[in-house]
């Protein structure tokens, strides 16, 4: 157990180092911040609307930004190992595949945690300008990060299939976009008129939007945590399965 932890830590450190060596992390964080700032201040007019809990002006845009940016950060996770064949080194080191999967996953997650942390000026601004409910804001951050983690786990799964990073990027983005669309307000309404109440509810529960949104407004519903935990663990278990079966 302690050994597994050490292996995970070694992989994690290497991966994190390489994100920052290859500038991927800086670029993704930079684009994320720019995009979120533009959306918040220019498009949604945060200052004028006075949306103190940041629901509509700030967090609202995160899933859409993640659809593209999360796969960009995660696409090399396993694709690069396949391409450069370093997977053969990992596969013959005395470590379990899980150490490698978790180490890589957590390193990419850390990049995103840093990106979210760097949005703190917005949080300070709201506290300076008004009297927001900081629990709701925290819950908003949690929803945002869990959405990011789900997309990252999907990217991990897709990257375990392909040694081509571009293929990984396109397919993961597409899958994340589908997951985003399924429960998205307008789409949900459209499905409701097309296919009726029942099917619409199923779609909404399957997509990420409803779960993200409920945390956004400060609802801690069990079903949302179950959804995020299911998507993340299923994708990581899938990654393990693909990596194992690829070898034989």
């Amino acid at each position: 157990m302690k050994q597994t932890l050490n292996h995970t830590k070694a992989i994690y450190k290497r991966e994190l180092g390489s994100y920052f060596n290859q500038l991927t992390a800086y670029i993704a964080i930079f684009i994320f911040l720019i995009f979120v700032m533009i959306m918040t201040f220019a498009v949604a007019q945060f200052m004028r609307v006075g949306d103190a809990s940041l629901q509509y002006t700030f967090f609202y845009w995160h899933p859409l930004v993640y659809v593209l940016l999360v796969p960009i950060v995660g696409m090399r996770m396993w694709s690069d190992e396949h391409r450069s064949n370093t997977i053969e080194l990992l596969g013959t080191f005395p470590i379990s595949t899980w150490s490698a999967i978790l180490g890589k996953y957590l390193a990419a997650a850390t990049v995103w945690l840093a990106a979210l942390a760097l949005t703190f000026p917005i949080w300070i601004t709201t506290n300076y300008l008004g009297d927001p409910d900081n629990v709701v804001i925290f819950s908003g951050y949690l929803g945002s990060f869990l959405t990011c983690l789900s997309f990252l786990a999907i990217t991990s799964l897709v990257s375990s299939f392909s040694k081509d990073q571009v293929v990984t990027l396109v397919i993961s983005s597409f899958l994340c976009f589908l997951l985003f669309l399924l429960g998205f307000d307008q789409v949900a309404r459209w499905i409701q008129t097309m296919a009726g109440e029942g099917l619409s509810e199923v779609f909404t529960a399957t997509g990420v939007w409803d779960h993200f949104r409920s945390l956004n407004v400060g609802n801690f519903r069990l079903q949302d945590f179950v959804w995020f935990a299911t998507v993340i663990s299923a994708s990581l278990v899938g990654t393990n399965f693909i990596l194992t079966s690829k070898r034989s």
Binding site: Q3, A10, T86
Partner: peptide, 20 residues
């Protein structure tokens, strides 16, 4: 196979770490 983004020493240190 090697991790291209590391230095020679960095890579060897990583491998040694993995080896406990």
């Amino acid at each position: 196979p090697l991790y291209d983004d590391m230095t020679v020493r960095g890579f060897l240190e990583f491998a040694a770490g993995i080896r406990g």
